[in-house]
Computed example of a mutant assay.
Amino acid sequence: MSAEVKVLSTSTRTNLEALKHHMKKLEFKYYEERDGWVTFGAHLMMNGEGVAPYDCISISVRFMDINVDLWGFDLINKLPEARQAILDFYEAEGNYGKDW
Rank of each mutant, 00 (worst) to 15 (best):
E4K: 11
K6N: 05
K6R: 08
V7D: 10
V7C: 08
L8Q: 08
S9M: 09
S9Y: 03
T12F: 07
T12G: 13
A18C: 11
A18Q: 13
L19Q: 01
K20I: 15
H21M: 15
H22M: 15
K24I: 08
E27S: 13
F28I: 00
F28L: 02
K29P: 07
Y30R: 01
Y31D: 02
E32R: 11
E33L: 12
E33V: 13
R34K: 15
G36H: 04
W37T: 04
W37Y: 09
V38Q: 06
T39V: 12
F40E: 00
G41N: 02
H43L: 08
H43A: 07
L44S: 14
L44C: 10
M46L: 09
N47D: 14
G48R: 08
E49Q: 09
E49H: 10
G50Q: 05
G50R: 04
A52I: 12
Y54W: 14
Y54G: 03
D55V: 06
D55E: 10
C56I: 07
C56W: 08
I57Y: 02
S58N: 02
S60Q: 06
S60A: 08
V61F: 00
V61H: 00
R62W: 04
F63A: 14
M64Q: 12
M64R: 12
M64Y: 04
M64I: 08
M64F: 03
I66R: 04
I66K: 05
N67C: 10
N67M: 12
D69G: 06
L70Y: 07
W71E: 09
W71G: 11
G72M: 10
F73I: 15
F73L: 14
D74N: 06
D74V: 00
L75E: 00
I76M: 11
N77L: 14
K78Y: 07
K78H: 02
